[in-house]
Design a binder for these strands. Structure first.
Length: 793
DNA sequence: CTGGTAGTTCGGTCA
DNA sequence: GAACTACCAG
């Protein structure tokens, strides 16, 4: 499965020879499908879908309710464009949010038109396409086209460095929150200079803006981009270079956007630039305002609500026929969502049976809730349902534990979606860091990650020293390590370690040309002592980690070389774990969007948990409406049965709290709902297993503090910004400081000069060799040191 | 530099 | 209640 990024980005630049190219093959494919009888691709579409597929000219918004065949419309539309010869595969820009969606779209287009979908280089996620564009025009963004993409982990470490360099107390201003803020700015399309003063004041007494600028400057030095840059930089490039933008205008005959309700400002701007309001731009956005659940991540429902104002003359097509859920389920969901204001308005129309009513079940506590759901699952299973057809959708991931415990006890197979992803695991990231270092010796963040993994006696202090050397000599850390191994800044032990390490890397890098990259990876993991480290590890998950490392090497096979693999990994790569077995799916409501199951269990419908108190505190009414949309998404995942639960007592942060049923329960229409009680609730003082299980909560609940006031008492972000802002330095100042620092230190010394060294004291310079000095210290004797460690007395 | 302990924090999630 | 971090002692 080739990722678009794995192919060189200029592949599609050459137009195919007239008549013989990919487009012709595409058409042939469609023709085959058509004459093959199995179907004209338009067959089986309802009138609205058909219209959405065939309305090719001008801006089009398809409002596709849950389960109305949205993906089908998108893919058929692409097939239609290709079949009618309106564009070649490389002239269609199709963006999704997730890799999964992109993959699915690619597969389904391929099913319609044949393998040509592989020839669709511009079908992908916002980020993968942004990467492609940025690599092509890297020099316009002050980067090399080989730039590395930082993930959240790298980002945090980088920010930590900046904070400590700026002497900012990490306790009061954690790197996380700055990362969060920067992310937020980037989501809103703001470069450091555009950050409004009020916003910048939110961090470190008004220094947020300058720190953001410093962070950006560091990224350029490291030849790196974070996820936000993958969109922001192309936007800037387009704005500053109309000729570049013009190339893309000429190229893209059609633009398609999936899940438009989830676009943030940056993505919106990016799309606006690529599809200007005027001219024959054929932009088709598909989305559902009722399923916008990522406001906290910067998504602007507004984008979809004002589509026809942004693109005058836009046509709006509503898909309202729902093929997924039975009538009772849709009735419940529709009535619930009707409590939201500011909707575009859509009514899902059921196509099938009434089915079963939505059930609402109350339990004493979360344990009982888990038991009664597990019982229900077993009973459905006895009646012949597959576990694969069941899902439990929770609001917050801490709710999952209770279910996992229960499933383990009962021996019910289950899978969790959305845990730490494969490539986010520690061992995978470590292994990747080694590979990144071999791929590019300038990858400082990767180097820093593995310099002391496994333990080599190279701790914080050593890394600090190396950083100092790297900064003053303006070389990457790897080079700094090589330098430091020859001088006497460090203790012999550390120098020895560094020497071995850098020599190893040198060897590996040389070997990388001649070897197969999978073998190279194995060799590196072996010789570095990394696999050995896990073999020695006694913790229970060590074996699994070794297994993961093997899996990593295996997954490299599908790539031609190391470079291609690393590119893929930074953007894509998720583990397709255990799809084959029959198991209940456990995941958050957010993760469930776009999926469907026969039986859906929705536990934890309690005030404070769902709707989440925190969301309501932060975003008020808008927050509540987003929670309601989340509830709507949850219910509409169900095809046959939707079962809702709430518990009277729940342990939160280790403390038992009593809770009241969610207001969303009151918003469900009576005629579609059946209220039941957990069977075990009747045996409160009784017998059987439940007595045992209930003992504990009963006792503890006497200590229960009522309600959610405590959570409310905690201030939101908004409080922080007020009252500060005494200092407001522009970003240029801080950049100047950074530059000044590194150049000032670079000034070298003459022989015979007196110098002072923090560790060795006063001395006289005997020799100067680049930035290395031989100094005769008064007390410490002759030492080789780097010039930035001494100063004039 | 390492390993232990004490203190803190605790939302969802995609690249 | 647990997991992660930061600090401290060896």
């Amino acid at each position: 499965m080739a990722d678009p990024n794995a192919v060189p980005f200029f592949d599609d630049d050459e137009p195919p020879a007239p008549g013989g190219g990919i487009a012709a093959r595409a058409m042939a494919g469609v023709m085959r499908a058509r004459t093959g009888g199995a179907g004209d691709y338009l067959e089986g579409l309802n009138p609205e879908q058909c219209e959405a597929v065939q309305t090719l000219d001008g801006p089009l918004l398809v409002l596709a309710g849950a389960g109305t065949g949205k993906t089908r419309v998108l893919t058929t539309r692409i097939a239609h464009i290709l079949a009618t010869g309106r564009a070649r595969p490389s002239e269609i820009l199709a963006v999704t949010f997730t890799n999964k969606a992109a993959r699915e779209m690619k597969q389904r287009v391929a099913a319609l038109v044949g393998d040509v979908a592989e020839g669709m280089p511009w079908l992908g996620t916002f980020h993968s396409i942004g990467t492609r564009m940025l690599r092509r025009h890297a020099e316009l963004a002050d980067l090399k086209s080989s730039f590395t993409i930082l993930d959240t982990d790298d980002q945090i470490r980088l920010i930590k460095q900046i904070l400590s360099a700026e002497n900012i107390d990490e306790k009061r201003w954690p790197a996380r929150s700055l990362a969060w803020a920067i992310d937020g700015w980037k989501n809103r399309g703001l470069a450091p200079k555009d950050v409004p003063p009020g916003d910048g004041a939110l961090f470190a007494n008004g220094r947020g803006k300058e720190l953001y600028a410093a962070y950006q400057a560091r990224l350029k030095v490291l030849n790196a981009a974070d996820f936000g840059d993958l969109l922001l930089e192309p936007i800037r490039i387009f704005r500053e270079n109309p000729d570049v933008l013009e190339q893309y205008h000429r190229r893209f005959k059609f633009i398609l956007v999936d899940e438009y309700q989830d676009t943030n400002v940056a993505q919106y701007l990016w799309l606006r630039l690529l599809a200007p309001a005027s001219g024959p731009r054929n932009l088709c956005c598909v989305g559902d305002d009722d399923q916008s659940i990522y406001g906290w991540r910067g998504a602007e429902v507004d984008n979809i609500l004002r589509f026809d104002k942004d693109f005058p003359g836009a046509k709006v097509i509503r898909l309202e026929r729902n093929y997924r859920s039975d009538a009772h389920i849709l009735g419940a969901a529709s009535h619930l969502i009707s409590h939201n204001e500011g909707r575009l308005g859509k009514t899902l129309r059921p196509q099938g049976e009434d089915g079963e009513r939505v059930t609402v079940t109350g339990s004493w506590d979360s344990g009982e809730e888990a038991r009664s759901i597990a019982d229900e699952i077993e009973s459905l299973q006895r009646k012949g349902s597959n576990l694969n057809d069941m899902a439990i959708l929770v609001r917050a991931s801490f709710q999952m534990r209770e279910f996992e415990d229960r499933f383990v006890t009962l021996g019910i197979d289950y899978r969790v979606i959305g845990g730490p992803r494969f490539y986010e695991r520690q061992e995978i990231r470590d292994a990747l860091a080694y590979l990144r270092c071999v791929n590019s010796s300038a990858d400082d963040l990767a180097f820093e990650r593995i310099v002391n993994v496994p333990k080599r006696g190279l701790g914080d202090a050593t890394v600090q020293t190396l950083n100092g050397i790297a900064r003053s000599a303006r070389v990457p850390l790897m080079e700094a390590a090589r330098l430091a191994a020859d001088t006497e800044e460090l203790k012999p032990k550390q120098r020895e370690s560094l020497k071995t390490l850098t020599q190893n890397f040198q060897r590996w890098t040389q070997a990388s040309d001649a070897m197969k990259h999978t073998e190279l990876a194995e060799m590196i993991l072996d010789e570095s002592g990394y696999t050995e480290m896990w073999r020695q590890d006694r913790s229970p998950d060590a074996a699994g980690r070794l297994e993961n490392l093997k899996e990593l090497v295996r997954s490299m096979e599908t790539f031609e070389n190391l470079q291609g693999f690393l590119e893929h990994v930074s953007l894509v790569m998720d583990a397709d774990s255990g799809e084959h077995m029959d198991a209940v799916t456990l995941m958050t409501l957010h993760a469930a969007k776009g999926l469907e199951y026969d039986n859906v269990f929705l536990p934890g419908w309690e005030e404070g948990l769902f709707p989440s108190q925190r969301t309501m505190d932060e975003s008020g009414k808008a927050g509540l409406e987003e929670e309601r949309r989340l509830a709507y998404v949850g219910i509409t995942r169900a095809k046959r049965r939707a079962k809702i639960y709430f518990a009277s007592n729940r342990r939160i942060h280790g403390m038992w709290q009593s809770s009241i049923p969610s207001r969303f329960l009151d918003e469900l229409p009576e005629n579609h709902v059946e209220v039941t009680e957990a069977p075990a609730a009747f045996s409160n003082r009784g017998f059987g297993e439940s007595r045992f299980d209930k003992l504990e909560p009963f006792q503890n609940s006497t200590y229960t503090t009522p309600g959610w006031q405590r959570a409310q008492a905690r201030g939101g972000f908004s409080e922080r910004g007020t009252g500060f802002g005494s200092r407001r330095g522009g970003p240029t100042i801080i950049e100047g400081e950074l530059v000044a620092k590194s150049t000032a230190n670079a000034a070298s010394y003459d022989t015979g000069e007196r110098v002072f060294h923090d560790k060795f004291g006063y001395g006289e310079v005997l020799e100067v060799e680049g930035n290395k000095l031989l100094v005769a210290f008064d007390k410490a004797g002759h030492k080789r040191v780097l010039d930035n460690f001494v100063r004039r007395p």
